[in-house]
């Protein structure tokens, strides 16, 4: 494992060196909120943030993505033929992504990259991205990453981890991609691995202690799916829900999309947009029948998917990294921590 340190004075300079080789994305403050945005030349990511309002999933899985274009003009030789779109898959770097968000990409990868099916749009974007993480030393009161299989210094899904240490960053380089990135920036102050490891371990313990909330997930796997599905608690949980899609749109691990053709006059595009299991339209059949017609059914689906079906299918935890965005942004305060605990302890 290689460690280096970056003096904060040479931070801007390094980014400047990277600029030609990578498209840089980082957290930027706008209207009191941080969002991941492409950085212009000379623009610095703002690391003074708890977490971004929206997850960075849109950088790999855009809310709206054009898949094909086509022409309906019969004078055009190629009419009615779907044509691929050229996309910019040049190297990109996500700078300052939190470990929880980075871990979410690993969860989502299970859906977009399977032995049977490969989602090339997602995969290409994912493979062209460097994940330069920023360890989290000041978690929010809604963070519960440590009990969601993740943590403030978690390394899964990262190419390198930046640890803020006053006037410098300690960088733990985790992959060859990360190595290239660091070399390309010209940061080369090697740090002693043992000493760095020790400092990071101490900071990690402190950060993990700060995480005040947690969920219990230990019993989910052995619960009967049918019993949970028929649980008596769903009406109470779902009552407040207004069936907006906020929770699913802000969630880094929600991956559902819907494909649409949009035609204006003679030309059209096939696009995919984020979709949400909170919307009645999500499951509406062409016949008019809707198997998830009530909001209780939809709320149940969201939580059962994340906290039971996924657990059963992959066997290594919940489909959630504990970023807490859905808790912070739900307009009616439906709290996944509470729901998870109810499900975990349900003896119906």
């Amino acid at each position: 494992m290689r460690f280096i340190t970056i003096d904060k004075n040479s931070w801007a300079n390094g980014l400047e060196n990277l600029y030609g080789n990578y498209r840089l994305f980082g957290p930027v403050k706008n209207n009191n909120q941080h969002f991941f945005k492409e950085l212009a030349k000379g623009e610095l990511p703002d690391f003074n943030y708890l977490n971004t309002r929206l997850s960075p999933k849109s950088l790999v899985f855009p809310q709206t993505e054009i898949m094909f274009e086509f022409s309906l003009d019969e004078n055009d030789e190629q009419h009615h033929i779907l044509k691929e779109i050229n996309k910019d898959y040049s190297p990109r770097a996500l700078i300052g992504i939190r470990p929880c968000d980075a871990a979410s990409f690993m969860l989502v990868k299970r859906n977009f990259d399977t032995p049977e099916y490969k989602d090339n749009y997602w995969l290409h974007a994912y493979e062209s991205t460097i994940f330069a993480g920023l360890a989290c030393d000041n978690p929010c009161n809604t963070c519960f990453c440590t009990s969601a299989g993740c943590g403030p210094f978690h390394e899964d899904g990262l190419d390198l981890l930046l640890v803020d240490e006053g006037d410098k960053f300690i960088v733990k380089i985790l992959t060859p991609k990360g190595d290239n990135f660091i070399n390309s920036a010209g940061w080369e102050t090697e740090a002693d691995p043992t000493a760095s490891e020790k400092i990071i371990a101490e900071m990690q313990i402190k950060a993990e202690e700060k995480i005040a909330s947690s969920v219990s997930t230990d019993k989910l796997k052995n619960k009967s799916t049918i019993k949970l599905y028929d649980g008596t608690f769903w009406d109470d949980i779902a009552f407040a829900c207004i069936n907006c899609g906020t929770c699913t749109y802000v969630c880094p691990t929600c991956w559902c999309f819907d494909i649409q053709d949009e035609v204006t006059r003679n030309s059209g595009i096939r696009i995919r947009n984020w979709d949400s299991c909170m919307y009645p339209l999500f499951t509406l059949h062409g016949t008019g029948y809707n198997p998830r017609n009530t909001k209780m059914q939809r709320v149940r689906q969201r939580f059962m998917h994340k906290l039971k079906y996924y657990v059963d299918k992959y066997g290594d935890g919940i489909q959630c990294v504990g970023c807490g965005r859905c808790i912070r942004l739900c307009p009616v305060n439906i709290d996944i921590r509470k729901v998870c605990d109810i499900m975990n302890n349900y003896e119906g």
Binding site: F25, E38, P62, T64, E69, D88, T264, G268, I269
Partner: peptide, 17 residues
Amino acid sequence: IKTMPDELVKSKISMAK
């Protein structure tokens, strides 16, 4: 005026917002 599909393709809406 709604953007014509071919212009959308050019504008690379499919990349990061």
